[in-house]
């Protein structure tokens, strides 16, 4: 075909729109002069948080409960578990279990919703309508959803720490009924502010990668066929899982290397 469709939505442009809309919205909200884009951002954050908070808490509690059960079952004596394993359990959850649980949830909810939304908007010519009206679809449609994902995911990871604790406690109580006070103290001793901040940053970065992948598939791979929407969404979800794994791997490698780098630097 001599006639071609415009390919305007590069990965860089998608990433740039998140920062430009995010910063713009922040200052406009500070000045109390919100635009429709800012209102859409707020609406998307509210919608994402409301529909994800219960599944997020349930998922992290389940992950933590199962992990606790596996560890307790492997331990020969509850006393050894309490003195040796439990002090490290909180840190283990915060650094590895919670980010993975939240990332999986965000992939399922965020990628599927965002990609199918954008791809179906392409089919129903909503994207073209915005372009013709002189509005930027990346700012009007993509950025609010991406910002919602990037704000909600780290917040959910912090809530997830508490849900994870509850899950671990329920399983521990069923298996060997430890004292709640000592369980809380030992569990919390492994959780540092630095680890929680690190987890929030990791989840934030994961959400950013997931959002850009969703935008790429929604805008660039979206065709005019409604039948393509499901296929594009599946591909986006698979790519996002790969993205989450890669981001986790990079952060864990950095985490392992940091003490050495710190030692060499000192």
């Amino acid at each position: 075909m001599a006639c071609q469709q415009y390919r305007r939505y590069s990965l860089l442009a998608l990433a740039g729109s998140i920062f430009s809309v995010g910063l713009g919205s922040f200052f406009r909200c500070l000045l109390r002069r919100p635009t429709v884009i800012d209102l859409e951002c707020v609406e998307q954050i509210r919608r994402f948080a409301l529909t994800t908070v219960i599944p997020a808490c349930t998922t992290t509690a389940l992950y933590a409960g199962i992990a606790t059960y596996v560890i307790v079952a492997e331990s020969r004596a509850p006393a050894a578990f309490e003195s040796l394993v439990l002090p490290r359990l909180g840190g283990l959850f915060v650094e590895y279990v919670i980010p993975l649980a939240i990332a999986n949830l965000v992939v399922m909810k965020g990628v599927v919703a965002m990609t199918s939304d954008i791809a179906s908007m392409r089919v129903s010519q909503e994207i073209e309508a915005l372009e013709v009206a002189g509005l930027n679809p990346m700012e009007m449609i993509f950025a609010p959803r991406a910002i919602a994902l990037m704000i909600a995911a780290p917040s959910l990871s912090i809530i997830g720490v508490y849900a994870g604790f509850v899950g671990a406690w329920v399983v521990a109580d069923l298996v060997w009924a430890p004292q709640l006070d000592s369980f809380v103290d030992l569990f919390a001793s492994g959780v540092s502010e630095l680890a929680v901040t690190g987890t929030a940053i990791k989840v934030l970065f994961t959400a950013f990668v997931i959002a850009v992948i969703s935008g790429h598939f929604g805008f660039r791979r979206g065709e005019r066929e409604i039948a393509q929407v499901g296929r594009i969404t599946t591909r986006a979800a698979v790519t996002a899982v790969l993205g989450v794994t890669t981001v986790n791997l990079i952060f864990n490698l950095l985490d392992g290397l940091m003490p050495h780098v710190w030692g060499i630097w000192r």
Binding site: Q125, E128, A129
Partner: peptide, 20 residues
């Protein structure tokens, strides 16, 4: 492009109304 688009109104085949 933006000047040209400002001067045109488009009715799309699928209406193209923004769902939200």
């Amino acid at each position: 492009r933006s000047a040209a688009q400002r001067l045109m109104g488009v009715v799309f085949q699928h209406s193209g109304l923004i769902r939200n």
